[in-house]
Amino acid sequence: MNWNSWSEFFHMGGYGLYVWGSYAVTFALIVGEVLLLRVRRKQALKMALRTVKYGKVENNEIAT
């Protein structure tokens, strides 16, 4: 075991800013991408449903 306490773990031998700065940004970007994927899927489904109901719809007509 490398760490005797949580504070030692967060301190990372003085490199905490660099190590956690790397992991935090990566984690945030992945969460962000997953959220964007969900938004895109919902919009694509909504658009497809409208097309099925009302016939052909152009991209620029679906602003809302």
């Binding site: 994927l37 899927r41 919009q43 658009m47 497809a48 097309t51 052909k56 719809v57």
Partner: peptide, 26 residues
């Protein structure tokens, strides 16, 4: 996982006028 998920949205966006999308959604 991310690429497959995005590909599915792209398919829906591009093929929404096709028969199979209509059947799928109905």
């Amino acid at each position: 996982a991310a690429a497959l998920s995005r590909a599915r949205s792209i398919i829906l966006e591009r093929e929404r006028n096709s028969q199979w999308v209509a059947q799928l959604l109905e």
